[in-house]
């Protein structure tokens, strides 16, 4: 049992929720500010805009999922913990980087795209879903980041 290994693994797990969550917070704030401006003129659009504003929130969820996958991998749920070598700790840390970093940047930029979608919806409410689809394009790379993290974590053998 190497304390550095466990610490690195926890660092990676924490980074996942931390970075992706921060990105989501920034992204939602960007979109929400635009939406507030639009609502001043068009209060009826609240429901439609809510979807666009909520979109950059998924990265934070992916990040949280990443953290829980580490928690499960480390056996924290049962109250104990598996023993790790230092290198295994680094492996887990590295595996968490895709969801953390791709999640952060994709959330920030999805916020900007959603924000533009909010403006689109303000002018043409029936085009809202098109704005959603464009924003979802940006999310794709957070999804791939999560996928990479899941597959990498899966491959790490703690036996």
């Amino acid at each position: 049992m190497d304390p550095i290994g466990l610490a690195m693994a926890i660092f990676g797990g924490a980074l996942s929720a931390l970075l992706a969550g921060t990105g989501s917070a920034i992204g939602i704030a960007t979109a929400a500010q635009t939406a507030d401006g639009v609502l001043a003129e068009e209060p009826d659009l609240f429901g439609k805009l809510l979807i666009l504003v909520a979109l950059p929130g998924t990265q934070g969820i992916y990040g949280l999922l990443g953290t829980f996958l580490v928690i499960i991998k480390l056996g924290f749920v049962g109250g104990g913990s598996v023993s790790l070598t230092m290198w295994q700790g680094f492996q887990i840390f590295s595996a968490m980087l895709p969801v953390a970093i791709a999640g952060f940047f994709s959330a920030v930029h999805q916020g900007k795209t959603s924000s533009a979608g909010v403006e689109l919806t303000a002018k043409r409410p029936d085009a809202m879903m098109k704005g959603v689809i464009y924003a979802a394009m940006v999310e794709t790379y957070a999804i791939f980041g999560l996928l990479a993290t899941i597959l990498l974590l899966q491959g790490i053998n703690l036996g």
């Binding site: 992916y62 949280l64 999922l65 996958l69 999804i143 999560l146 996928l147």
Partner: peptide, 19 residues
């Protein structure tokens, strides 16, 4: 492959909620 990631995310978050 996004289908896999989204599917696992749904299931994973569901498990988290249960835990």
């Amino acid at each position: 492959t996004r289908l896999l990631a989204l599917g696992l995310a749904t299931g994973g978050i569901g498990m988290v909620i249960n835990v």
